[in-house]
Simulated scan of single mutants.
Amino acid sequence: MNHDKYILLITFQFIVITGLFFLDMYDHAIGLFKGSLFISLLTVTFIVLIKGFLTRVRLKHMTVELRRATKGNFKTRLLAKDDYLFDEVVFSINELIEELEKVHVQSAKSQTARKSLLSSISHDIRTPLTSIIGYIDALKDDIATSEDEKQEYLNILSKKAGSLKQLIDEIFDMAKLDADEIPMKEEFLDLAEIIRESLIEFLHEMKNNRVELHISIPEKNCFVMADRLSLTRIIRNIIKNALEYGKDGQILGIELIEKMNEYQLHIWDQGPGIPKEDLEFVFERMYRGDQSRTPFSAGSGLGLAIAKALVEKNHGEIWVESIPWEKTTFGFSIPRYNHMNRFKK
């Protein structure tokens, strides 16, 4: 029922009742006029009752539809019927049902992703653990015939145990990021200096694999406001990925670009690259592409997912571009520091 019409009917009913009151009070114009007022009063009252009944029916219908929605029928929608007050409620309820549908879909996707993640984690833990148990049994049974062979077994055990520890550490880190339990201590940092410090860790590995370093970093300070530990972790994870899967190209490129509102760090190589169909998935947890060079094919499967989450927590963006055996670039941005407004972005 239209709100304005309802007010009009109530107002007219009030006027009729008032008129009848004064007629009785002064006992004037008893005849036809008074009868007309009574008929008008009865008519208005009847209309109000009918409208009230229809409103009640509509409310019951809305209740039924809402119960259908709460039981999982998210395709339910209420219809508007040219009634200002009811239409406002209907629009709000329809928006709520749409949000419930989105939450339901997201929940289903999350559940599927969680099952896939647990399956992948189980596989990635079981594989090195089985290998570790095998080498331990071999050492216990004296299968190794010489000290050199025993030492080789121990080296393999150490490497497998280290990989297993790294996987478990990254699983915990990812869980903490999901729960927003990793504290972000923003500091006034020189991004160029952070990059140089992060590179030192990989110089020995680059030398052993004959990887040539191409570096382009501004000589001046490149100030950002970010969390030091997470920024170092982002750079480390991306460089590690580039060396692990792009070392055959024998070049590692580091390029820090200064933009108007941000700094962009590009880390690239000339290795086998990433197939076009895999590019959109490389930052997903435990994603495995048949020819992908991401850490998901041999590492923990969480390195780039962690990097992405940390970049976003530092107000930046991350992306990847790849032309196999020509150039594969992982890049991320960090807003430039602005003393007038903290971030110039």
Rank of each mutant, 00 (worst) to 15 (best):
Y6R: 15
F12H: 08
F14R: 11
F14E: 11
G19M: 09
L23Q: 12
D27V: 12
L32M: 10
V44E: 04
K51C: 09
K51L: 15
V57R: 14
K60P: 01
L66P: 01
L78F: 06
L79G: 01
L85Y: 12
N94S: 06
I97R: 01
E99Q: 13
Q111L: 09
R114I: 10
K115R: 13
L117H: 08
H123I: 12
R126D: 14
P128Y: 07
I132W: 05
I133F: 10
A138E: 15
K140P: 02
D142S: 14
A144M: 07
E147F: 08
Y153S: 07
Y153W: 07
S163W: 03
F172I: 14
K176V: 04
L177P: 05
A179L: 13
A179C: 02
D190C: 05
E193V: 09
I195Y: 02
I200L: 10
H204K: 10
E205G: 05
M206W: 02
R210D: 14
V211M: 01
I215D: 06
N221H: 08
A226N: 07
A226V: 11
D227L: 04
L229M: 10
L229A: 12
R233N: 12
I239G: 02
I239E: 03
D248L: 11
G249V: 05
L252C: 05
K259R: 14
E262A: 11
I267P: 03
D269W: 05
V282P: 01
F283V: 06
E284S: 11
S292P: 07
T294D: 15
P295S: 13
S300W: 03
L304N: 04
L310W: 01
G316M: 04
S322N: 05
E326G: 04
F330M: 02
S333K: 12
F343L: 15
K344E: 13
